[in-house]
Design a protein around this nucleic acid. Sequence first.
DNA 1: CGCAGTTTTGAGACTGATCAATGCCTGTGG
DNA 2: CCACAGGCATTGATCAGTCTCAAAACTGCG
Lengths: 254, 254
Amino acid sequence: MNNIPHSTQGAVFQTPCAHCPLRAMQTFRGFAPEELDFVRRLKIAELHAVAGSTVLLEGDTVTHLYTVLAGWGFRYKTLSDGRRQILNFVLPGDFIGLQSSCMAEMRHSVEALSDVTLCVFPRERLWELYRDHPHLAMDLTWLAARQEVLLDDNLLSLGRRTARERLAYLILHLYLRAKELGLAVGDEVALPLTQQHLADALGLSLVHTNKTLKRLTRSELVHWRGGRLRILDFDALVALARYEIGEQPPRPFI
Amino acid sequence: MNNIPHSTQGAVFQTPCAHCPLRAMQTFRGFAPEELDFVRRLKIAELHAVAGSTVLLEGDTVTHLYTVLAGWGFRYKTLSDGRRQILNFVLPGDFIGLQSSCMAEMRHSVEALSDVTLCVFPRERLWELYRDHPHLAMDLTWLAARQEVLLDDNLLSLGRRTARERLAYLILHLYLRAKELGLAVGDEVALPLTQQHLADALGLSLVHTNKTLKRLTRSELVHWRGGRLRILDFDALVALARYEIGEQPPRPFI
DNA sequence: CGCAGTTTTGAGACTGATCAATGCCTGTGG
DNA sequence: CCACAGGCATTGATCAGTCTCAAAACTGCG
């Protein structure tokens, strides 16, 4: 009982829900006391995934649901010959694993980009949430709907934007999401990505991604050095990407 | 009161929920009596959209939710210069408009491909559904999660498949969805699409789509004539597209 | 210092885009 | 019954964007 090992999926809650770092943020909506209480009891563990590790694997049968507490990750799928497509990036507040409730097997994988902390919820207790906390249930739907909006945007990008526009779009997207979570310092963010990740998210080759990024750098729109992204000309990026800035009411999370 | 006009959005329910054509299908799960009763009262109208008409427009503030009862449509987004991307196709049983519950404005449009019949639900009563019918609430989440799975697949296609593979994938996807709904006769389906629609769904130009389709026809994989699609070599298509056939439990719908 | 992973660069090949016609149906009006 | 218009499908020629291959230059780290 004593001397609990420092395992990846320990029984110890390093982060009590009452002091959830997400709740402190302005972007996220607060909980009613009884909701907080329920979520606290729903959380059965905290998972620490090391940078580069696979959190979920396509084909797995998953019995847990996760909320990202801290860190960056990405969802991806691969074709049988190894071609990989990053579907989107996973940031704090994102809910992972809902798909497993409608598909027998996981249809995508999730990998940690940085060290990632996740709250773990047992899938079989999801029913309790729906039964006793309709408000939280709506929040889950809200999160799913938001995912869909992001995927739609991405689809438009892959289908109809040129490489340059696509990269500008992705950069803005990442920057704005990071900023929303307070991860940006002025016009600068630390992105734990390699250009290979960008390429796989953009549906481009590594080489062409590099050349495109170089062009964006040379025209003084952005600056990318060793994982630090700096937005030099926000408006020009927005124009280039034809970025639509969508207003959102405060986000829920679980 | 008599002589009710044959309006697009009449107050008359041509299709009572008790005899919903979807319920008769094997793919869809049944309702408990009280659920059926609730949904029946939730449905406030039936909308008939003529082929080619716009059902929902990006930027609109939408106050209704819809279930497709019959017909084909598609969701799409456009860039400010007119480039259009079809996000996915909408078939009977699909639920439309959930996104509006998290975004102030619609982030995509929906257009009818054939004449389409939709059940109309008021958005503001969604809360009642969550509060009183947790089972239906889970169904909604299920539907949203399934959407996400489809979008993920699509994203992989646009990002990493070649034109040929992409087309094979889309054709299989459409065929299997139609078949699931009993819209296929043997290896043949009537698809109310032009090649322009295919192109916009695939992220390709019209010309290249045509040439690619021609190649698929010449190699005896499919046959496409005036809106009729015929699968000539299913296995070869599956292999070409690297199509993953995912098993699904019986679908819910609202 | 040397390695492994990443970024950068150049050259050439190829996929898919664009432009420009032409052909093919189907419905309409004379 | 024919002429014609409008929407779609088809084709060829050329062009541009992106990919692949190959190699070199960097970077952080043990």
